[in-house]
Simulated scan of single mutants.
Amino acid sequence: MNDSPAAEWTTTPITADVLRGALDLERTERGVLPHRLPAKARAQSSDGQLAMVESQPSGVRLAFRTAATAVELDVLPTKTVYRGAQTLPGNAYDLLVDGRLAGRATADGGNVLTIDMAAGTMTTESGPVATVRFTDLAAEEKDVEIWLPYREVTELVALRTDAPVEPVPDRGRRVWLHHGSSISHGSNAESSTTTWPALAAATGDVELINLGLGGSALLDPFTARALRDTPADLISIKIGINVVNADLMRLRAFGPAVHGFLDTIREGHPTTPLLVISPILCPIHEDTPGPGAPVFDDGVVRFRATGDPAERAAGKLTLTVIREELARITAARAADDPNLHHLDGRELYGEDDFAELPLPDALHPDAATHRRIAERFAKHAFGAEGPFA
């Protein structure tokens, strides 16, 4: 660590001026807690899963301009572990300097949230504040970003640097607002900068607001209102898999829920390019309804579908049904909404991809697949003829 006397260090208040990707900042005893849903939305749900994932800061980053050679960030993380399962990735703090990865660190200490998926219980063990350090940076003016871990709820306590900090000047980049499930949240990616939305945003040279909410892309009206009320130049929603594996609704409810979700977004963004993405290939749920359930085998978690394919006739949802319905709905609406677009998720990850890069737990892609999905999405959305061109 830099040996400069404490008097030479600058402590910068952590405010919205130096934070991107969060929709709300909650004041805490120690500092601030970034949220990816606003307080009004959070107040309308009592679901513990949603409360956990919306406060896991996927895509949330500190962003500032400085000539500092050393940066310290005090944090109180809440690390999530699953009883009986292996440790998952997603706990890294990524340092970007002028848009390029320049360092990666993790935070020791903090709280530990233990989830027992078999029993459906959660327990929390308290721990101390930790310090994340980056040193040996060039002593010249530069844009610095610290991307927070997508799997750790992260209370920000203090930001210290050995040179003054100022907000990054407006670069005039477009804002891309994306909502999706755990795959958009980041499941199994190396870090927040290597989730498929973050990689695609870097390729498209846009500012990302990632509302990927693990297990919680459920067409909730409060999420639609959050999308409606968030300034954005580009919007995408990737929906379907959580509705199936949560066994949340039947076909009769799904179609009107999609229409209502889109109607709400359009109240705030009547002409913004809006891309609806159906689920990527997931063989366990292609023709078998949910609910999904975890299976533990020597510390490895895999998922299976527990529904009966015959129940599709009674309106139970599968990914095949959802893709057909999303294609139908978007085609019908596009007649009056030329800025509404549709993408079949199997163009991002389909049968050939599954043969080469199978889903490790039968539900989520691995790090290499995140990169593949990002490349294909960027080519489709940001290409010359794409909806986000």
Rank of each mutant, 00 (worst) to 15 (best):
L275M: 15
A202Q: 15
E267T: 11
I277R: 01
A232E: 06
I209H: 10
T271P: 00
A198P: 11
K238E: 15
I235Y: 05
S278Q: 06
D229P: 09
A198M: 10
R225E: 14
V206H: 09
P283A: 12
L227A: 03
G204V: 12
L213H: 07
V258T: 02
A201D: 11
R266T: 04
R250Y: 11
P270R: 03
A253H: 11
P273S: 02
L248I: 06
A246L: 15
P273C: 06
L211W: 02
P283G: 13
L281I: 08
L234A: 13
A224Y: 03
A224M: 05
A217P: 01
R228S: 07
N245M: 14
P221F: 05
A198C: 10
P221N: 05
I209L: 13
D263M: 00
P273A: 02
T203L: 14
L248Q: 14
A201R: 06
S216H: 07
A257R: 10
L281S: 12
R266Y: 00
L274R: 06
L227G: 04
K238D: 14
L275P: 13
I241V: 15
M249P: 08
I265S: 03
D263F: 01
E207V: 15
V244W: 03
S216I: 00
C282V: 15
E207L: 14
V206N: 11
G215K: 05
I239H: 10
A224Q: 08
E286R: 14
A200R: 07
A257D: 03
L262W: 00
E267S: 02
L208E: 10
L227Q: 04
V276R: 04
T223D: 12
N245K: 14
L248Y: 13
L248S: 14
G215A: 06
P279I: 06
D229F: 05
V206T: 13
T264H: 00
L208C: 13
V258K: 00
G268E: 01
G214F: 05
E267M: 03
A198Y: 07
R250L: 14
G214C: 13
E207H: 13
I209V: 15
L211F: 07
R266A: 02
L218Y: 02
I239A: 12
I280W: 14
V243I: 14
L275A: 08
A224T: 06
R252W: 07
M249V: 13
E207Y: 09
L248K: 14
A226Y: 08
V244S: 08
F254M: 06
G268R: 01
A201K: 07
I235D: 10
D233K: 03
G260D: 05
T203M: 15
D263P: 00
R252H: 13
L213Y: 09
G204F: 12
A202V: 11
V276S: 04
L199D: 07
D263V: 00
V243F: 01
I277Q: 09
L227N: 04
G215C: 05
P273G: 06
R225S: 12
G204T: 13
A201P: 11
A257S: 13
A202R: 15
L262R: 00
I284K: 14
F254P: 07
L213Q: 03
T203P: 13
T230S: 04
T272S: 00
R252D: 15
L219Q: 04
T230R: 03
P256S: 02
I265M: 01
F222M: 11
P273Q: 03
P221M: 04
P231A: 09
